[in-house]
Design a binder for these strands. Structure first.
Lengths: 295, 295
DNA sequence: TCCATTCTCTGACTCTAGTCAGATGATTCG
DNA sequence: CGAATCATCTGACTAGAGTCAGAGAATGGA
């Protein structure tokens, strides 16, 4: 790793965290502990406490106390869920919504103030650079993990994949039609399911099926809508190829539908060449292959 | 202020502070409170505790306790200053230096790890965008303040200005030669001294002398070496012009030395036009003027 | 010289942000 | 139906990060 790049990252960190007062919303909640403000924000238009707890990764006792404090301040009401009387539902009161909107406004004012000090050209550059950092930093923390097909996260990805294709294909799409895959085929050594995670949310997946000395078959490649434009598809493809090579596959091949133009462009630019149909997948219009053997 | 810009700043804040674990050095000090690590870092190669206290803006009792804890851990030694036996000097021990270097290495490793996940092109874009954000964020928090010429900060700026010119002019420079200014001339309504501050450090200055209905005379404009390239000179000039207009000066004029090529370029691009010599300042080669009257 | 000021230290607090071990009631599974 | 599991609450702790009010030495200025 280039030393000057590392030094730049550290300089960035220093400046950004020193400006914490300027950048960070935290200090806006002057009159209230940060934890409470955060909860206020996350409750939004009403939520069950269980999901709050798991998502913010907080101790249940701690959340309970925070909620009671917010309740005492008249910002939140809680009630037991009708469906499951163990779970608590939290809802903002009128005052709670007002308080949240106030935090929101202050946060906007702070950001506006920061920008206002700069002349137009510099302001535009700053905003553009922030957008870049935000995008690329998000991309940088995506992690790839081989996941069991029975894992709920895996199920979610495959359903999202199917929903996406169903929306985009003429005549829709169903996982049940076409060539199907048994969960056992998505486990090593038969195959694998690779998932891209952004913190705790899945943002992409891809499947490899191995056939001994034959080329590995790539399927079910999907990138979540909000995570597109981060170069995630390319990285996912590269990660899948790396794992195919690890399993000694001589090549990767795949079929795709004409509607998936970005995917086709990605395959071409990643070194895939179009080949004659190697199966009779009904949804496919194009078949591609890339050798993993070093020339 | 454009709403989408404000929204971008807030999105940036959210992503950057959520990645706090990735970006922030804080969590590297797993085995030690953050305050102690910070002190360890700031002591560097030995410092007096007084300056640590004022610079980090910490309570004296708090610093005292932190230092004793570091001393107990064998990372720091303290002794009384020979010059003033009230002040304490803190110095890192061998172990303290090793600990500091360890923190440094971990911080580098963390930054490198972040970059490593990205493919080359994205990595370069991220680093470039971070450099932009860092520069522009720094520029955005510079504040301008009219300051009394007897203030130590003012003295520092004027000395730095003189030192800079002394280094750059053929034959050097001295505030005592040429046209001099009495401190009283740098106070309203005779004139003013404007200082640009980055947190607690002065990073630029400029002087205006008012002459009733005659043009205001701009002098002593200086930008600190490490703060250059942030567009600070241009902003300083604009702030000075704004204040000259406030005092009803019809124009601003100034003289400058041929060695100061960036300054001359700045004046020209800010709308100043070269005029015949209006004084006999011995260091000057060029005289400029800009009208403040709206056409 | 003496009095005010400066620098540091000590002891006694506070507040935030948690963690941990049960207790209690609701629900689900065999 | 009974046992296990789940969601929440309560009480008892802890650690970090400070704040505040003096006390005591050293120093500087009248």
């Amino acid at each position: 790793m280039d030393e000057t790049m590392v030094a730049q990252v550290r300089r960035f960190n220093r400046v950004v965290t020193q400006q914490a007062g300027v950048l960070n919303d935290r200090y806006l909640a002057r009159d209230r502990p940060v934890g409470e403000s955060r909860l206020l924000w996350e409750i939004g238009d009403g939520r069950d406490v269980r999901s709050l707890r798991t998502e913010l990764d907080l101790d249940s006792g701690y959340v309970s106390r925070l909620l009671r404090s917010l309740e005492a301040a008249g910002l939140v009401t809680t009630e037991r869920s009708a469906a499951d009387r163990r779970v608590t539902l939290a809802r903002l009161t009128e005052a709670g919504r007002a308080e949240r909107d106030l935090l929101d406004e202050r946060s906007n004012a702070l950001a506006a103030e920061l920008l206002q000090t700069l002349p137009d050209r510099q302001r535009e550059r700053l905003v553009a650079a922030m957008a870049d950092v935000e995008r690329l930093l998000t991309a940088a923390i995506v992690r790839f993990a081989v996941t069991d097909p029975d894992d709920p996260v895996a199920q979610h990805c495959l359903r999202a994949y199917a929903a996406e294709l169903d929306a985009r294909f003429d005549g829709g799409f169903s996982l049940d039609r076409g060539i199907r895959a048994d969960p056992a085929d998505l486990r090593l050594p038969n195959g694998l399911l690779l998932i891209a995670m952004l913190h705790a949310t899945p943002v992409g997946c891809g499947v490899l099926l191995f056939h001994g000395a034959e080329p590995a078959h790539l399927k079910r490649m999907w990138v979540a809508e909000p995570a597109r434009g981060l170069g995630l598809g390319r990285r996912l493809l590269a990660e899948l190829e790396r794992r195919a090579a690890e399993q000694h596959a001589p090549a990767v091949r795949l079929e795709t539908n004409a509607a998936l133009t970005e995917a086709i462009a990605l395959y071409r630019s990643a070194g895939y060449t179009e080949v004659p149909a190697f199966n009779d997948e009904p949804y496919a219009h194009h078949w591609f292959e890339k050798s993993l053997l070093r020339q």
